[in-house]
Simulated scan of single mutants.
Amino acid sequence: MPKITRPLRSVLYIPGSKMRALDKARTLACDAIIFDLEDAVTPDEKTAARETLAAAFAEGGYGARLRVIRINGLDTTWGYDDARAAAAMKPDVILLPKVNSPADLEALAEITGDIPLWAMMETPAGMLNAPAIAAHRQLQAMVMGTNDLAKDLQTRFRADRLPLMTGLGLCVLAAKAHDCAIIDGVFNAFKDDDGLKVECDQGRDMGFDGKTLIHPAQLDVANAAFSPSEAETELARRQIDAFEQAEAAGQGVAVVDGKIIENLHVATARETLAKVKAIAALNAE
């Protein structure tokens, strides 16, 4: 499965049962939408939600936003019907909750064919099997389910997320080893922009590609946090220019702002500029 190269700074959950929310999502500045048939839909709405979501997909209008459908687990009453319905809607991605092993993804792929898959990483077993899950041939991204993980680990809430760091780190390592995208978990206090920014910055520093969000009010903070800043962009250009001049002079390293610049720094700088270009292209659509 090809690596995702598009921006995934902001990945917004939208209830698949709420037509008003599905309509509004067409206007929101998010990079991806998770159309949720799982946690955001009550048991008595599950069947109707498939029909509501199918009508929204048939209408279209979501532009360049990546369209992801999260189904219920295949171990639930609704999972198999969700999987078949989701495949018929032809989304960009199908997201499976509570993935414990590659076998869970394989069972889904038998139903949904070659549609790319994402995996919710939210159980202790999932953390321990992260490398094998990330290696699945159809997996394009891992999505952290930090609320469920915290519940299973019986942790206390901490703003620094220290109790979750082992799991977060294992999934980041697995994703990077297998060229998967990886999206951080949600921040529950949707009116706390300062707290959200702290958690977004932490996730970005760890290597996450973006953050899952529960409310449109969180979009601006996440988009800014996971976009290269003007200073980072300008530094990337100067690093590339300096290194190219050094190479032309027969030297293997350059110096920018008193710091040595080698091939690896230039590779990172080029990735930064490519991300800036991709974000600009997405914003233009």
Rank of each mutant, 00 (worst) to 15 (best):
residue 2 P to Q: 15
residue 4 I to N: 14
residue 5 T to L: 12
residue 6 R to P: 07
residue 11 V to P: 04
residue 12 L to M: 01
residue 15 P to Y: 13
residue 18 K to D: 13
residue 33 I to Q: 06
residue 39 D to S: 10
residue 40 A to R: 09
residue 41 V to I: 13
residue 48 A to Y: 09
residue 54 A to I: 06
residue 55 A to P: 08
residue 65 R to M: 15
residue 74 L to H: 00
residue 79 G to V: 02
residue 85 A to E: 05
residue 86 A to S: 09
residue 92 D to L: 00
residue 98 K to L: 03
residue 101 S to Q: 13
residue 105 L to G: 10
residue 111 I to N: 00
residue 112 T to Y: 04
residue 113 G to R: 08
residue 115 I to T: 10
residue 119 A to D: 03
residue 120 M to Y: 08
residue 125 A to M: 14
residue 127 M to A: 07
residue 137 R to I: 11
residue 139 L to S: 02
residue 141 A to N: 06
residue 141 A to L: 12
residue 143 V to H: 08
residue 146 T to V: 07
residue 151 K to E: 15
residue 154 Q to T: 13
residue 156 R to C: 14
residue 156 R to P: 13
residue 157 F to P: 09
residue 160 D to F: 03
residue 164 L to D: 00
residue 166 T to R: 15
residue 168 L to S: 02
residue 168 L to I: 02
residue 173 L to F: 09
residue 176 K to L: 02
residue 178 H to I: 04
residue 186 V to G: 03
residue 187 F to Q: 03
residue 189 A to E: 11
residue 190 F to H: 05
residue 191 K to D: 15
residue 198 V to H: 11
residue 200 C to Q: 05
residue 201 D to N: 09
residue 202 Q to W: 04
residue 202 Q to M: 11
residue 207 G to V: 08
residue 208 F to P: 02
residue 215 H to L: 04
residue 220 D to L: 11
residue 224 A to I: 12
residue 230 E to L: 10
residue 241 D to Y: 12
residue 250 G to Q: 11
residue 252 G to F: 10
residue 254 A to M: 07
residue 255 V to D: 11
residue 261 I to G: 08
residue 268 T to Y: 09
residue 272 T to K: 09
residue 274 A to E: 10
residue 275 K to H: 14
residue 282 L to V: 10
residue 284 A to V: 01
residue 285 E to C: 13
